Every structure is written in structure tokens, then in C-alpha cells.
Amino acid sequence: MDPIVGKNLSEFLETLRLREEPMGLYHTEVKPEECLVPPGMEPPTPEREQRGEIDWQAVFASFSCVMGGIWRARKKKTAACFSAVQPGCPGGSFFLGFHKPQTETILKYVTTGIPGWSTGEKYCASPEALRTIFTYLDPVPAPAAYCVVKPLSHFAADEAPELVLFFSRPEPLCGLHQLATFVTNDPEVVMSPWSASCGSIVTWPFHYQRRGLNKAVLGGWDPSARKYVPPDELSFTVPYAMFLLMLERYHDSFLTTDTWSTVVKKAARSAKVWGEQ
């Protein structure tokens, strides 16, 4: 990983009043020796669905939210690892690029429901509307067998993340948001599209990269995944190159001004309210 990370990260986090180091996401053909993995799952692919080979009751019995896995990795300061046979859930398998298109069963489950089984999550008006969204999103296929998320401090000198994931409440988050524009000169650098929470930290960032767009993604809006983050917390995902620019240039930004010091005071009050100091 770039030497600037080890040199500047601690002070960078302190300046922003971020109480937790960010996580790095990368793909690899080698499963980390120490990592948290979800239960095994029948691959929920449309091909297997069409052949009637998926036992959906068994699939949902082994359900394990991707964000839940990352939350446990955050608390234990270790890695979370996902694969095509251990994706966490059918939605995660799709959003992490292990299969596409999404199955008809999940399209119905997320929208209007399945008679006699599920009333539906009602996150989109119809299966057809959701299919249109998923076709546009078109997740980038996972480029290796494993998708791994681990603390930045766990990356070796010869490793580098593809994406950097922050988890933050509004005060530090406003610093990240504004700093993204400072280092890119793009007033629309931060995007916040509809998605499952795992889509916000994986799928949409890679979607923008594939289109040649340098974007940060604000996420964590998925009601089903809110139980896996502390109150008031959202995610903020940036490409690794953008993160390096933040570390390199934050000293030149508003983060050194009196204006930011007022935000720091609010961040301290927030931490006190949540019993963090």
C-alpha cells in the first residue's frame, strides 16, 4: 500500500474526528487465513432457478447479510470474505458480482411479494421496475474468487485496496463529503443512488468506474440493513486513488480552518451522547 497511508492516516482520522479506521475492499484468488465468512449457500443463479434446482427455503435459512458480515469484521478488526458459494444472501451474490441477472424470485421478494410465502419488501413498485434498475446497474462481475473487506491497517506493503469504505455519523461525514470535491473539483463527485447497502459500497462505485467516472458513493439507506450499523451512521465509499488524494491534500483544505473547529466540537458532543468518550 502507498506509504502515505501509514504516514498520514492516523492524523487524517483525528482531524476528521473519525473514531474508526476505514475498511479496504479488494478481490483475490487466495482466501485470507483469518476471515469471517457467511454460511454456504446454493448458488442463486437464474439458470438454476429456471431448472427448478434452487431450494429457496434452504437459501433463506442460510441468509447472512453482507453488511452484517462487514459489521462483525469491523467490531473484531478482522476481514470479512465473500464468494460465489458463500455470498451471504441472494441479493449480496448479485450486488457483489457473483451472478447476474437477478432471479425472478428475488425480484418479486424485493417488490410485490410471492403469494403464500412473502408479502414482499416493497422497495420498488414492481418486479419489472426493479428489473429495469438492475439492468441499468449491471454489476461488474467479480474479478476473482473472493471479495474481501478488512481494516486498512491489515493491508501488507505489497497490497492495496480497490475501494476504501468509511462509516461515519454526519459531522465527520460532512468533512469527507466536502473533501471529495476539494480533491476532484467536481461538485457532483458524491453520488447517493438507490441500492441495498452492499450495493452502495461495492456495486455503484465499480459501476461509476466502469463508465470512466471518479465518484464517491454515500450509502447506508437500506432499511433492511440499518440494524447492522450504529444509529445515525452512513457509509462513504471512495476509489483508492481518491482516498490517496485526500490523505495528500487535506492539510490544504477547510479541515485546517476555524470553521472546521466548530464541527469538531459538534462531533465531540455527538460522541458524548453515544457514550464514546
Rank of each mutant, 00 (worst) to 15 (best):
M67N: 11
E171K: 08
E53N: 07
L179D: 07
E128V: 10
G97F: 02
E159A: 04
R19N: 12
E29K: 13
P32N: 00
T256Y: 08
R249D: 05
K227Q: 12
F182A: 09
P39M: 03
K266E: 14
E29N: 15
K227G: 08
M242E: 02
D258L: 10
Y136D: 14
S168E: 14
W194G: 08
S235L: 03
T132C: 08
C174H: 08
T135R: 13
S192D: 04
A241M: 06
G199A: 10
D258M: 07
V140W: 09
T111C: 07
C198R: 01
S153A: 07
A225H: 06
K215W: 00
F243P: 01
F243W: 03
G113Q: 01
L18C: 05
P161D: 00
P32V: 00
L25M: 11
W71C: 13
S253I: 06
G52M: 06
E233D: 11
P205Y: 05
Y208I: 03
T256E: 15
L176N: 05
C124R: 14
G6D: 09
M67G: 02
N185M: 11
H251I: 05
C174L: 15
P127R: 07
P223L: 09
P141K: 07
A144I: 02
E14N: 14
K227L: 12
V229W: 02
G68L: 05
E171Q: 13
R269E: 14
G88R: 06
T119K: 10
H27D: 05
A225P: 04
Y240D: 00
V164C: 07
F155E: 01
P87A: 08
T15R: 13
Q57A: 14
P101K: 09
A129N: 05
S126V: 05
P223R: 10
T119M: 15
K77T: 08
I201Q: 06
T103R: 07
L218V: 01
A61S: 15
S93C: 12
K77S: 11
C65E: 04
R74E: 13
V217G: 00
M246K: 03
T256L: 08
A271Y: 12
L163D: 01
D158K: 10
R51E: 14
E276Q: 14
R169P: 10
P170K: 01
A58T: 10
P141M: 02
P230C: 06
D222A: 05
F155W: 04
L137E: 08
Y26A: 04
S224N: 09
Y250C: 01
Y109V: 09
P39L: 03
